[in-house]
Write a protein that binds this DNA or RNA. Sequence first.
DNA 1: TAGGTACGTAACCAATTGGGTACATTGAAC
DNA 2: GTTCAATGTACCCAATTGGTTACGTACCTA
Lengths: 105, 105
Amino acid sequence: MDAVLHALADESRRTMLEILRDHQATAGELADALPIARPGVSRHLRVLREAGLVDVRQEAQRRIYSLRPEALVEVDEWLDGYRALWRHRLDALHTEIARGKKERK
Amino acid sequence: MDAVLHALADESRRTMLEILRDHQATAGELADALPIARPGVSRHLRVLREAGLVDVRQEAQRRIYSLRPEALVEVDEWLDGYRALWRHRLDALHTEIARGKKERK
DNA sequence: TAGGTACGTAACCAATTGGGTACATTGAAC
DNA sequence: GTTCAATGTACCCAATTGGTTACGTACCTA
């Protein structure tokens, strides 16, 4: 959980996940898509790997990265502890709006 | 979004949110509950405030902080872009398990 | 108005992060 | 076996973070 949230806090890393959401990619392809040099990308990929957010598979010299979306379940479950609260608030807001409409009639 | 995820990346801040989930609290109460000194807590609270995760209300000298769970909707919506993917994978896993059970009969 | 209480902010410091360049490694291909 | 391609790691540096102590400020109380 900690590792996942930490990994998600960086924008470059979120961009990588976004790319991998559409298709797998090699480290080089990811580097080309980002404004930072390959070694930097390599280190970001390590963070994502250690958080369980991506998988790597080797093919000749290429390292092919793919998304491991299950890791995000942790975040979803953490959010669960708060979801009821914001739902409750939004419900109250909607009720308020509905009442407003009614009274304006 | 960026501000919210950044705020959530720190464990002390997540602990504060957890406390505020149960009841509002003054800055001092939050500081007492954490292993860091009040000025540190003050700065964490600023981060949470700027991310929209908490509200403050002044009452005499006290600053009373309360959770603003709506801010977490941003994270939930971001997750939405991935939820289908992990659901799909988990479904496949369950199917696999079901098939395994069947074949073992 | 003097003093205490509850905060926030300023200044400072050590540790971490995120970037870059240079180098090591591994596999293909000639 | 030499060379090229793809990638990770080591090392260095500037910026950011997270903590501390010291100080400023606002508000109640006597």
